[in-house]
Nucleic acid binder design. Structure first.
Lengths: 154, 154
DNA sequence: TTGATTGAGGACTATTTTAGTCCTATTTAA
DNA sequence: TTAAATAGGACTAAAATAGTCCTCAATCAA
């Protein structure tokens, strides 16, 4: 339902934990303990964030992870594509096959507009925004948008 | 990857077909033939669109489907929620469990802002926009956003 | 009134994607 | 040299999505 994967959700939790203390590196085990996310899963996410150059890592004893950039320069779009690959609402073939038959392609172009809008929205929010507490007054439109779910953490 | 389901994609194709000729009802079989989407799948999509009051249906011989509203009044957000349920980027528990531990909930509120932005974007584009051909000049940012895929139709 | 046509509803299966785990190799501090 | 960490990737399990099919209800026309 146009939903982020759990891993991406976890990633924001992990990143905000790391962002709270930038004076030292954080080992995967420490992060797992602090967030309650299982270690192998934490580890998997951290590796992907390193590949995307969102985090930098230090190997060996006393090793761990730290932010590779300032929180202001880590956009949500970056985090999403680190975990889930490129952000694209529609699956549109660049090779023409099937796409410009009947009614297909007149529609496609307009999806791109939507793609772009969403991408901009995600690009404009950074980790710095995410770790800043928000006013509680906004609770009212949580009801409109969110759907209930059993639990976030397993 | 923050992607629409295939069914939603099909739905836009089907809706734009129906919108092209509003003078008569269109049977599922006719739509399947015109779009190249398998009949059972077309049928499933049409039923969901009727439930969402995007289409109205006539049963029996000479029956079929037609738009229940003007194309200008059918938003993409409506189509998406008809096919995929409510639009929500994050799975956030309304029951507190797990969410206000450690770092969870400071983050959540900001996701809602993103949700809202995306929802607005999807609400602002209608079927009328989708069936209107777009200028080809925009082809340049198709490269940035879209990812290649084998084929849209099976 | 009856038969053909067409949608409604929902159960079911198959496929694909996502989540989660684990193993082995490499790096580094002590 | 050893212990503590990450890197990379293979593998399994679980969940979501896609797709099909069956039975029932409604409508039209002969």
């Amino acid at each position: 339902m146009l939903r982020l994967s759990k891993l991406t959700d976890y990633a924001t939790v992990i990143l905000s934990f790391i962002a709270r203390d930038t004076t030292q590196v954080h080992a995967a085990m420490e992060i797992a303990a602090a967030t309650g996310i299982a270690l192998p899963t934490v580890s998997k996410i951290l590796k992907r964030l390193v590949n995307a150059k969102v985090l930098s890592s230090t190997r060996g004893a006393k090793g761990g992870y730290m932010l590779a950039r300032l929180p202001e320069h880590i956009s949500i779009a970056t985090v999403i594509s680190a975990l889930e690959g490129p952000i694209a609402i529609t699956e549109c073939s660049i090779s023409q096959q099937g796409c410009d038959q009947a009614l297909g392609c007149g529609i496609r172009g307009n999806w791109n507009l939507i793609n772009q809008t969403i991408h901009n929205a995600l690009e404009s929010v950074t980790l710095a925004d995410m770790i800043r507490p928000i006013p509680a007054q906004d609770a009212q439109w949580q009801q409109e948008i969110l759907i209930p779910v059993a639990s976030l953490y397993r």
